[in-house]
Design a binder for these strands. Sequence first.
RNA 1: GUGGGCGUAGCUCAGUUGGUUAGAGCGCCAGGUUGUGGUCCUGGAGGCCGCGGGUUCGACCCCCGUCGCUCACCCCA
Length: 426
Amino acid sequence: MSDPTPINAPIGTRDILPGESEHFATLVATFATWAQRYGFGLALTPLFEDVGVFNRGIGEDSDVARKEMYVFEDRGGRTYALRPEGTASIVRAFVQHHPTTPWKVWYITPAFRYERPQAGRYRQHHQLGVEALGTDDPYLDVEVIALAWRFYEHLGLRQVRLHINSMGHAECRAMYLTQLSAHLSEHSGSLCDEHRDGWSRNPLRVLDCKKEPCVAVTDAGPMLVDFLCEDCREHFATVTSGLDTIGIPWLANPRLVRGFDYYTRTTFEFVAEALGSAQNAVGGGGRYDKLAEQLGGEPTSGIGFGSGIERLLLALEAEKVVLTSKGLDAFVVDTTGGAVALELVERLRAAGLSVDRSYDQRSMKSQMKRADRSGAAVALLVGPSERESGTVTIRDLRNSDVADRQQSVTLADVVASVQDYTNKAK
RNA sequence: GUGGGCGUAGCUCAGUUGGUUAGAGCGCCAGGUUGUGGUCCUGGAGGCCGCGGGUUCGACCCCCGUCGCUCACCCCA
């Protein structure tokens, strides 16, 4: 009947548990703060969508849509997919609800891609990001990029480079694609093994190829920037000069095409140079002026970016940045059976303090050890004599060199005394 | 989808040409200190040596299979 074999988390997924989850939580809280500062409201959308939301959005020929989506059929025969990225769902919600524009939202979500896991790449990872719909004002592009930049900066990342490019709008890109295809066709024999026969399915992808043969061929070929129309050129110039104005360094990268078909005009990527591996993009995004239409809505401009939380945590680790989170204020050590601790921790918690205690009536030495490991600022000791006199002994656990590390306070003064300690520590 | 590496204690890892009771460090528990953590000392618990099969008198070790983890390619966050 029952199989006693333990079951592990699925391939490419992982548990984020205390010890690590504090960093995750601090990172999300930081992003929430910054997104709000920039005027974005939180948007929560379903984890799964009609598969068309993603197919139409990110392009049926993209790798993600072709082979990386978790697609399934529900009991009613509808075909759904777990979201592989954040933008398409948000735009679907925009089309469905017709909010007034400009509509600025931020999100945090798991994202799913069926691919072989490796360092910095998971089948379920977490993304946070923003989307802004309803205007093609280039200053909005600047703001979205600025938000990402300030967020990384505030986290403590110092080795992030902003790569930026313009994909043009539909017409300039079409002109460019004709030229690029002609060039690739002429030199297809010199492309890498993978693209020699496969380049025509998505010529832009060849620009993204890092292999020597492809780089050589595309270097000698036409570049998208040279095909931008007057409007697109001006849009791009306004974005980059806007970045200059507010002091955000950028790097023009004409090869930056990114993986999803919906991008138009501005595209950008944040590369964490501290990450040695190929998985060094901690965030990216761009403008998508056709996506709302593709999802059945009115033509609506939009721009956004997404950032991978796991990648950011790896980048922070690589840069040796430690995200601090608030530890315990106090740990109650009760050697009289634990009933005094019960009341004490409740009172302290009600006063807004973070408090833990030990259980199972362990020895004082054992409880003190736990108090120490807990990282609490102070230990609150209750033994027979304290219980007798209605007092608590407060012991400073962090400053081992000061003389008066312990003091006795009445139960009535405990809350205020602990608050004194934690305020001093700040 | 393709290729490499690795599966031994909670964690990180040793383990001799195949040989008898499988080890260390850290962590955990307890004691040294019957009311005091971090340092130190002592002791203890904890292992189907991933799983299945094969070779052998004998397998953690060699062979095959399988599952899992991991790294890389591809692509991406």
